[in-house]
């Protein structure tokens, strides 16, 4: 599934940077019924994590009340040049990854 990642391409050492992520997912709550009364099975992203050069800097658990195509934004301190790796894990074995790099001067 595609994801949109916004990490500043460059930052000064020690600068606080904002990271924004948006991913495509239906986030079906598991509480809705079809027209003929059958329960639509739950299908959501249950966990998101972000690693900065291998070390986890942010993690979130997601629940059924979260909107489709979840948008998450968080902050970190730019310490060194390198790579951010993002991972979304969900129901039915769902897994999606993305990455972005940053140059710290």
């Amino acid at each position: 599934m595609p994801a949109l990642i916004n990490v500043p391409p460059k930052a000064r050492r020690g600068e606080v940077i904002e990271i924004r992520t948006l991913t495509s997912h239906i986030m079906e709550t598991g509480f809705r019924h079809t027209a003929d009364g059958k329960l639509v099975p739950r299908d959501i992203i249950t966990s998101f994590s972000c690693r900065y050069n291998g070390a986890e800097i942010f993690r979130a658990d997601l629940f059924p009340a979260i909107a489709a195509n979840p948008y998450l934004s968080f902050f970190t301190v730019a310490r060194e040049s390198g790579k951010f790796e993002f991972e979304w894990i969900g129901d039915n074995g769902y897994s999606s990854t993305a990455s972005a790099s940053i140059i710290v001067e």
């Binding site: 595609p2 949109l4 990642i5 916004n6 924004r20 948006l22 495509s24 195509n69």
Partner: peptide, 17 residues
């Protein structure tokens, strides 16, 4: 206004593929 927060852009990416 922000293409990284506009969920419509996810579909544009899919369309590009």
């Amino acid at each position: 206004d922000d293409d990284t927060s506009n969920p419509g852009m996810l579909f544009v990416l899919e369309g590009e593929a």
